[in-house]
Amino acid sequence: MRAFLALLALLAFMPTAKAQPLVADLSSHLIAITTGFAGTELLLFGATEGEGDVVVIVRGPDSETSVRRKARVAGLWINRDEMRFAGAPAFYRVAASKPLAEFVPPALRQRYQIGTEYLRLQAPADANPDEVAAFRAGLLRNKEAQALYDAEIGRVSFLGPRLFRTRIVFPANVPTGAYSVEVLLVRGGQVIGAQTTPMFVNKVGVGADIYDFAHDWAAIYGLLAVLIAVFAGWAAGAIFRK
C-alpha cells in the first residue's frame, strides 16, 4: 500500500507524465513460499494517460510439457500416445478492464498471447494437426484443473478515469521461478503503452533448505528419511507399550 501511495505522489508531481502513457507496479515482486504458505494474492496497480483499456498477462516460467493420452487396449484404458509441447508457461492468468472481444482485435491477442486459446505451444513439426489440436486441448484442460491456467478473464477495475488495479491470485501449488507481468494499454485496437514487470516465486526458510538438501545431498537425505521413519516406528512402539 505504501508503494501505491508513493506512486500516487509520483504521478501528482511528475510534470512529464504525458510522455508515459502507462505506469504500473505490483504490491510485491517476490512471493516467498514458507512452511505455512497456502496460496497468496498480489495487487497490481497503475495509472494510464488518456483514454484506453488495460490488459494484464501473468506468465510463469516456460517449460517442456508432456501430454499423454489413454487408449483402450484389450478392454483396458492404458497410457498410449504422448506429445511434447515447448513454450507452455507453468502459470498463466489474464485480466482486462472490459470483455476482450470489445477492445482487443485477434491480431493483438495473437501477438501478445492474450487468452489460453492464443498461447503459442509448439508441438513437434511433423505432428498431425488434428492430433496437435487434441493434445493441446488436453494440456489446457489439465492445467486449468490444477488451477495453473484460467480460461476466465480476471477483472481490472478503474478507480476514476486514470487509476486501475487488479488482484492476481496464486494458488498453493504455484510453481517456483521467474514470472513476468505484462500490462498493455489498448486504445482503438492498438497497443499504445506497455510495461513488463518481473516477479519471482521462491521457496524460503525451512522448506527451501529441505528442497536444497534433497537435491544436493540426495543419498544422505534418503538415508535420513529411512532412519527417521524407523525411529518414529520404534519410538511409538516404546511409548504405547502396554
Binding site: 510439457t65 508432456s66 501430454v67 499423454r68 487434441a134 493434445f135 488436453g138 489439465n142 517456483t176
Partner: peptide, 15 residues
C-alpha cells in the same frame, strides 16, 4: 479425461 500431463521429474530452477 483421456489426456493427462506427465509429471516432470526435473522442475525448472529457482528464480
Amino acid at each position: 479425461d483421456l489426456y493427462s500431463i506427465r509429471f516432470d521429474l526435473a522442475p525448472p530452477p529457482q528464480g
